[in-house]
Design a protein around this nucleic acid. Sequence first.
DNA 1: TTTTGCATCTCGCCC
DNA 2: GGGCGAGGTGCAAAA
Lengths: 232, 232
Amino acid sequence: MRVVVARCQVDYAGRLTAHLPMATRLLILKADGSVLVHSDGGSYKPLNWMSPPCTVREGTTEDGRVEWTVTAKAAKGATPDTLRILIDELLHDSSHDLGVDPGLQKDGVEKHLQELLAEHPGTLQEGLTLVRREFPTAIGPVDLMCRDITGISVAVEIKRRGEIDGVEQLTRYLELLNRDPLLTGKGRVRGIFAAQEIKPQARVLAEDRGIACAVVDYDALRGLDNAEDRLF
Amino acid sequence: MRVVVARCQVDYAGRLTAHLPMATRLLILKADGSVLVHSDGGSYKPLNWMSPPCTVREGTTEDGRVEWTVTAKAAKGATPDTLRILIDELLHDSSHDLGVDPGLQKDGVEKHLQELLAEHPGTLQEGLTLVRREFPTAIGPVDLMCRDITGISVAVEIKRRGEIDGVEQLTRYLELLNRDPLLTGKGRVRGIFAAQEIKPQARVLAEDRGIACAVVDYDALRGLDNAEDRLF
DNA sequence: TTTTGCATCTCGCCC
DNA sequence: GGGCGAGGTGCAAAA
């Protein structure tokens, strides 16, 4: 990895064109050829960049300044994306051998929430029992298929943040599920939209379509789980 | 901006928990307190990070190693996100004054496509004329509201890539627009789904709902525009 | 391999 | 400040 601080000007041409006027920035050249251009603010997104696979060519302009030309591997029949970095003044330049990174270990995303709710469907609605997780349909799997105390089927869609498109998704599932006589024997399939946070518009749309909303407390669910673990 | 290369171990606790085992990485501390942890590969996304606003506190562990604790500004009533970086060996450490960045100038995204189609609605369908761009409705603006040769209103949704959620969006608009007697005078409002590329599933859904699909040639439209410029 | 859907998404616009 | 849509989205699991 090469780390450079330089006064530079950057031009990108590809799916869009973008231009960065001359200013001091941090330039990172990774081992795979990818390049990042960072300023001293903003979030993790660089001002400009080139994703791998790509190649960097170091050249010199007519007036003797260094210019890097980063070229992406061209897609079939298209002009490849290019990033031109014109360097006016080099303030720092160092290279480092980082080796291969062992990678990130994550925990606590939607899958985990689904596991916890599959273990404790009763927290969504009194008496609800699990039929199966990832219940397959022609347009994709329903997160949880359950049955309520009266035997009616209940489809549960789980999101971390409940927004309007999640309600649309559940609506499509319900439309399809309600054509299946095996599921509608005891009455029309109901829907529950479960999320750690449900946006107002999503709630309105869900209620308008007769879909129940359930706000899920992740920490409390994890607590339930740990409590049971201690019993066995 | 401080640039550090170090053998380090990183732990994040917040919306999820994540752990990075001890390895050599690039650490960037920006002027606003934000921190990025990069490996020598992947794209522009860091392995781990903390977004501003946040603060960094440099401390020492019992065994004498340096540890940075990055704490995000806490959301109301929630435990704040934290990032702990334990440094085993410092391989590089330098600070640089970058100043304020003048920022990125962009050109050529969806807005431009919308402008071009607003100029040339006839390329979507013979005889189509523009009523207005960003036609307001209660659930958001319709990209283009047009009228066809028979006087029927036509709502156009424009996407760079046409996927299923775009069809859903247009469907919601049409549902609403068709309740307005001012628009339905000459017949039900029709929909056109316009994109540079339309995914098969989106096409099927659109046709199932009586929505026409239009694949847009961005370069050809730009050509039309330039040709007209030359006439005046 | 391509497609699909989530993300500690980020970012910008408009209310 | 919150909501919503777009992104040169990135990313990984599934098909």
